[in-house]
């Protein structure tokens, strides 16, 4: 008759995480201890119930679809980044040539700079506004 229960070793036994010596100890103990045998059976049943319980309602396919969305968002973000970087480089390049161009008067340069500079500021302002609205719009996903 076993006197000292094996306690947490039951969980290790159930999960196959014991050394050979510990396994033998549990096996030997359980052969003479009804309480530990019952505990082991109950823990095994509990583990099976949890492994089959619907703890998440989402399926693998849904995660695959979500990942595709993430990839699209990432590539779109990279695309925008490259586009803005290219636009900035082109803008500075044009500005540099405008400044060193000796065939134009200061007034002509100022007018050209004002028109294109103003357009760039307006474009930036509209884009910024759109971005803010997109982040804060609660109804953006609502389809009409």
């Amino acid at each position: 008759m076993a006197t000292e229960h094996v306690g947490e070793l039951l969980s290790g036994y159930l999960d196959g995480e014991l050394t050979q010596q510990q396994r033998q100890r549990v096996t030997l103990h359980c052969s003479g201890c009804e309480q530990c045998r019952d505990d082991l059976a109950e823990l095994r049943a509990l583990r099976e119930r949890i492994s089959g319980a619907p703890l998440s309602e989402l399926g693998e396919d849904q995660w695959r679809e979500n990942m595709n969305d993430t990839t699209v968002q990432l590539s779109r973000g990279i695309g925008w980044l490259l586009f803005i970087a290219g636009l900035l480089v082109a803008g500075f390049y044009a500005l540099y040539h405008l400044m060193i161009d000796s065939s134009m008067s200061f007034i002509e340069k100022f007018i050209i700079f004002g028109v294109y500079g103003g357009l760039a500021v307006l474009l930036f302002s509209v884009l910024r506004q759109r971005l803010i609205e997109r982040k804060t719009d609660k109804y953006k996903d609502v389809e009409i």
Binding site: S56, L58, G59, E60, D61, Q62, W63, R64, N66, M67
Partner: peptide
């Protein structure tokens, strides 16, 4: 990606 999809439910 495939492994992440398989782990999605567990992570959730």
């Amino acid at each position: 990606r495939e492994q992440l999809a398989q782990m999605g439910n567990g992570a959730h």
